[in-house]
Design a binder for these strands. Structure first.
Lengths: 99, 99
DNA sequence: GGCTGGTATAGCATTGCTGCTATGACCTGG
DNA sequence: CCAGGTCATAGCAGCAATGCTATACCAGCC
């Protein structure tokens, strides 16, 4: 898989850095959130451009986010959730109960 | 309530801006996460400095975060969760089921 | 009083996420 | 083949969060 552009490679490098366990977790979280949003978006039959408009972003930002290109910020997640008509949940859970 | 420094005022200004519904949500989320971390920390009888050390931050960063001074980023939340030995949960939920 | 530990703030540099435009690849329909 | 729609990516500007140091405030204690 040679050609995926820069951020995919950057993310992998980030995950490979020594002592970057939490950064790794953040990258994985970003990846999974991207997948979740993509799924919600496609379930509604929306294009990236439509979701972008609904959440006050541009199509490129949506694409970047869905690809896990960056670790998103909470304001962005809130806006996406609002556009997708879901609610964003951020919380700390006991270690055992993996939400 | 005159003297709370700059960010408390900044946050309130942010929440008061028109058309900032999602930004408001983000600020509230920041506030609640700060309270949650403070509670977990105090429950363990730790000082801000101890938590800071455990999560690779400085005491001032912990104080700023607990006060809701800024909207935290996911990497920071991950590190705090790791230090507090809890797991961070970020997910989209159906609108009805308010987590 | 002075001392110490905990917390709150300030001011600054760095980092990195987002917003933007533009473009290229890929399909599909005409 | 060309047009249109969708998605991926590049490159850059702006800005916000973090990391840092230093400091002020406020206990409690000696």
């Amino acid at each position: 898989m040679g050609e995926r552009g820069d951020w995919a490679a950057m993310r992998e490098r980030r995950m490979a850095e020594p002592g970057a366990a939490e950064a790794y977790d953040a990258a994985r979280l970003a990846f999974e959130l991207g997948r979740a949003v993509r799924e919600l978006r496609e379930r509604r039959g929306w294009s990236q451009a439509q979701l972008a408009k609904g959440s006050g972003m541009t199509q490129s930002a949506v694409a970047r986010f869905e690809a896990g290109g960056t670790v998103p910020t909470l304001p962005v997640l809130e806006r996406l959730a609002a556009a997708l008509d879901v609610s964003l949940s951020v919380s700390f859970e006991p270690r055992d109960a993996a939400a």
